[in-house]
Simulated assay, not measured.
Amino acid sequence: MANPYENFKKDPESLKTDLTTLQYEVTQKAGTEPPFQNEYWNNKASGIYVDIVSGEPLFASVHKFDSGTGWPSFYRPIDEQYVQLRNDYELWVPRTEVRSRYADSHLGHVFNDGPLPTGMRYCINSAALKFIKKEDLHAMGYGELASLFENETEK
């Protein structure tokens, strides 16, 4: 099956009008939103999180956990083909930046202090994401990901 995102091209000028100032700063300038003051840090709904720029499916609520950091945190992406990791030396301590594969949006950072089964903590900016509820997956073109929630118990 062809990857619908592999030929994605972003138009920098339209991004300036399509995204909020914060979304643009985070995704295009590698900014960081404030902790505990962002849309999804405490979201408990079932669904997936996609790249705000391209729609690439990135993370799922079934892999989300409360890291206590004030940002949405996940122990794994839905599919590693949609994320890329880069070394980040912007601060005094080297970090690993997480970016979307095709839109090349800055998403956040990944750390090795997360829960099992991976031990990873993908600490992601809400401003880089759009949330799609589990019940809307088919209508929004993500029906193939509904299987992620087959064994989910109600929260």
Rank of each mutant, 00 (worst) to 15 (best):
M140V: 05
A103E: 02
L137M: 06
M140Y: 01
A103C: 08
A127I: 06
I132P: 06
L116H: 01
A146G: 13
Y102Q: 13
M120R: 05
L145Q: 00
L116F: 00
I132L: 03
N125L: 02
E154N: 08
V110Y: 03
E150K: 11
R121F: 07
A146P: 13
L145D: 02
Y122W: 12
E150L: 09
F149M: 08
G141N: 01
G141I: 01
A146N: 07
A127F: 03
N151D: 02
R101E: 14
Y142S: 10
I124V: 10
K133V: 08
F131M: 12
K133M: 04
K134R: 15
A127H: 04
K134P: 05
H138Q: 14
F131E: 05
C123W: 11
D104H: 09
G114K: 13
E152D: 10
L116Y: 00
N151S: 11
G143K: 14
L137F: 08
F111K: 08
F111R: 07
S147E: 15
A128R: 01
L148A: 14
E144D: 09
Y142P: 11
N125F: 02
K130M: 06
E152F: 14
N125Y: 04
G119P: 00
G114N: 02
N125M: 01
H106L: 00
T153F: 12
A103Y: 01
H109P: 13
E152N: 10
S126Y: 09
D104A: 11
L116W: 04
A128Q: 05
V110P: 10
S100F: 03
Y142T: 11
T118W: 04
I124F: 10
C123P: 09
